[in-house]
C-alpha cells in the first residue's frame, strides 16, 4: 500500500462520519413520547373528541392550524365546521388550548422528540405553566 498513513487518516475520518449515529447514542436511553390528555377540561368532557378524528389531527394539525390562522386573521371568518357538521370557534388560545392547556406535556412532547419548532409562539403568548 502506498501513502498508508494518509489513507488510514482518510478511512478514520470516513468512519467517524458514517458511524456517527451509532456512537453518538451509546449509553443514551430514549423513550417514545407520550403526550398527556389528562387536563381538567378534557376529563370533564362527556365525549372525549377533538375537532376532527385523532388520526387526522395527528397528521394534519399543523395544516389545520395554518388554515385556521388564514381564515381568522386574513378573512375574518371565525367559525369552522368539522367533518361531522359541528361548528367550532376558530382560536388557538380559546379553543385548542382550552382543552390542551398542558403545552409542556402535550405539544412539546412530540415536537421536542422530532425536533420541530412551531412558530405559533412568535405571535401567541405561551401559556404559563408550572414546570412538572
Amino acid at each position: 500500500m502506498y501513502n498508508g498513513g494518509k489513507i488510514l487518516i482518510g478511512i478514520i475520518v470516513f468512519l467517524l462520519f458514517a458511524a456517527f449515529p451509532f456512537y453518538n447514542n451509546i449509553g443514551k436511553v430514549s423513550a417514545k413520547p407520550e403526550p398527556k390528555l389528562n387536563t381538567p377540561v378534557i376529563q370533564q368532557l362527556a365525549e372525549k373528541k377533538c375537532v376532527e378524528p385523532k388520526d387526522f389531527m395527528k397528521a394534519e394539525h399543523m395544516q389545520m392550524l395554518n388554515d385556521w390562522r388564514d381564515s381568522a386573521i386574513r378573512e375574518g371568518k371565525r367559525t369552522y365546521i368539522n367533518s361531522e357538521g359541528k361548528p367550532f370557534y376558530i382560536s388557538l388560545q380559546n379553543t385548542c388550548m382550552n382543552c390542551h392547556s398542558n403545552k409542556k406535556e402535550f405539544c412539546d412532547k412530540c415536537h421536542t422528540y422530532a425536533a420541530v419548532k412551531p412558530y405559533c409562539w412568535t405571535c401567541h403568548i405561551e401559556p404559563k405553566e408550572k414546570r412538572s
Partner: peptide, 19 residues
C-alpha cells in the same frame, strides 16, 4: 449500511495499492 461502510473501505484500500 454494512455493504456501504466495508465496500467503501475496500475500494479505497484497493486504490491505495496501485502505485
Amino acid at each position: 449500511l454494512f455493504i456501504f461502510i466495508f465496500g467503501v473501505i475496500y475500494r479505497v484500500l484497493k486504490w491505495a495499492k496501485s502505485p
